[in-house]
Amino acid sequence: MFAKPLPGYTTAAAEGDVVVLLIGMRINHFRGVHHWLPVALAMPRMLRELGRDKSRGLLGHVLLTASPRTYYVVQYWESKEKLYAYAAAPDMFHHKVWGIINRKVRASKQRQHVGLWHEAYIVPEGSYESIYFDMPPFGLAAATGALPVESRGRRASDRFAHRP
């Protein structure tokens, strides 16, 4: 099932602060498939877990490939508090996976087969711009809803004018 494009220019309907988390992995040695495949399979499971419980704070996500070696997810969160709460919750899959990864890294044999990374950005309300043209809702707009660009202002400077 494909999403239908919204005609014209649209923007994200995000209200309040949004946390953007980029999180991914890099396969450093393809031959070490038994090291990196479990890591690659963990993220979809975490995303399903979060999708079943919207109160955890994940608004939406986009899976991306940067190269044949590098895969990542752009995640949109309601707040840094909800992001950190999920990451540290002992009853959630992330906590279990992170413990396993840390134990294997300490065992040293797995080191350097797979690289892990994340970057988190807190985007204060009004300090972002998102423009989509003849697109279905994507990225932040898919996570928060889409609005006509004019609802945020005609010019880019207008859309950023209410920044704190």
Results as ranks from 00 to 15, higher is better:
Leu59Thr: 03
Leu59Phe: 00
Leu59Val: 02
Gly60Asp: 01
His61Ala: 08
His61Val: 05
Val62Ala: 04
Val62Leu: 06
Leu63Cys: 09
Leu64Thr: 05
Thr65His: 02
Ala66Val: 03
Ser67Pro: 00
Ser67Cys: 01
Ser67Thr: 11
Pro68Gln: 04
Pro68Leu: 04
Pro68Val: 08
Thr70Arg: 09
Thr70Asp: 12
Tyr71Ala: 09
Tyr71Glu: 00
Tyr71Asn: 06
Tyr72Lys: 00
Tyr72Trp: 12
Val73Lys: 00
Val73Cys: 05
Val73Tyr: 07
Val73Arg: 00
Val74Gly: 02
Gln75Gly: 02
Gln75Pro: 01
Tyr76Gly: 03
Glu78Lys: 15
Glu78Val: 12
Glu78Leu: 14
Glu78Pro: 01
Glu78Asn: 14
Ser79Arg: 12
Ser79Lys: 09
Ser79Glu: 08
Ser79Trp: 07
Lys80Tyr: 09
Glu81Asp: 14
Glu81Phe: 01
Glu81Thr: 07
Lys82Ser: 15
Lys82Leu: 14
Leu83Arg: 14
Leu83Ser: 10
Tyr84Ile: 09
Tyr84Gly: 03
Tyr84Leu: 12
Ala85Leu: 02
Ala85Gln: 10
Tyr86Cys: 06
Ala87Tyr: 08
Ala88Gly: 12
Ala88Gln: 15
Ala89Ser: 13
Ala89Cys: 07
Pro90Ser: 04
Pro90Asp: 05
Pro90Met: 00
Pro90Thr: 02
Pro90Ala: 02
Asp91Phe: 02
Met92Gly: 02
Phe93Pro: 03
Phe93Arg: 02
Phe93Lys: 03
His94Thr: 02
His94Asp: 06
His94Leu: 00
Lys96Ile: 08
Val97Cys: 13
Val97Asn: 11
Val97Trp: 13
Val97Arg: 11
Val97Glu: 15
Trp98Val: 09
Gly99Lys: 10
Gly99Ala: 10
Gly99Cys: 11
Ile100Thr: 11
Ile101Arg: 05
Ile101Cys: 04
Ile101Glu: 00
Asn102Cys: 13
Asn102Ser: 15
Lys104Gly: 03
Val105Lys: 14
Val105Arg: 12
Arg106Gln: 14
Arg106Asp: 13
Arg106Trp: 09
Arg106Thr: 11
Ala107Gly: 06
Ala107Lys: 11
Ala107Asp: 15
Ser108Tyr: 06
Ser108Gln: 13
Lys109Ser: 10
Gln110Thr: 13
Gln110Glu: 15
Arg111Ile: 01
Arg111Glu: 02
Arg111Lys: 08
